[in-house]
Amino acid sequence: MEKSIEEKEEFDESEIEYTSYAGEHHLPLIMSLVDQELSEPYSIFTYRYFVYLWPQLCFLAFHKGRCIGTIVCKMGEHRQTYRGYIAMLVVIKPYRGRGIASELVTRSIKVMMESGCEEVTLEAEVDNKGALALYGRLGFIRAKRLHHYYLNGMDAFRLKLLFPLKPRLPQIASQDQTQQEQENFTA
């Protein structure tokens, strides 16, 4: 769902403001950005499905008050793993290649990690060099190739990022312990 890098806009990285999804007023901004950049049309229900259930995983990037990039994600159980999923990522052309997409993705991934996700996945077109490089730098592997995934007949890669496996048993034990300590304390 991501696009490659083309013409540039003059700006300083510090001028870009990032904000988490904060309500209905952000929805039209996200929709217009995604509609203009991605070929597939999504109904308003699709956008709402994501941003109402996982507002904390949705971020917007602004430059001088103009929305220039956004990321929309979800997370949930998937075959016995708790998994994050990046559904849409858009940075408009003049702002690409300056780390804005990386920043948006990093912010979402951090929240997923803190929320207990074990892995993050997404799909990207096989010839979308920009997106593949971006996710490669962040530690994603190309786990699968999906034949004729897009309506135009193009294949996709399923990209996956696995978080380091924490030694589980000791961690659960310590959690129980703290809980118990807290209970003892409050009691």
């Binding site: 730098r137 962040l138 530690g139 990022l161 696995l162 978080f163 496996l165």
Partner: peptide, 11 residues
């Protein structure tokens, strides 16, 4: 990468 190591990719 910033989020994982070679071990996770290998896995």
């Amino acid at each position: 990468g910033p989020f994982n190591t070679e071990n996770e990719k290998f896995t």
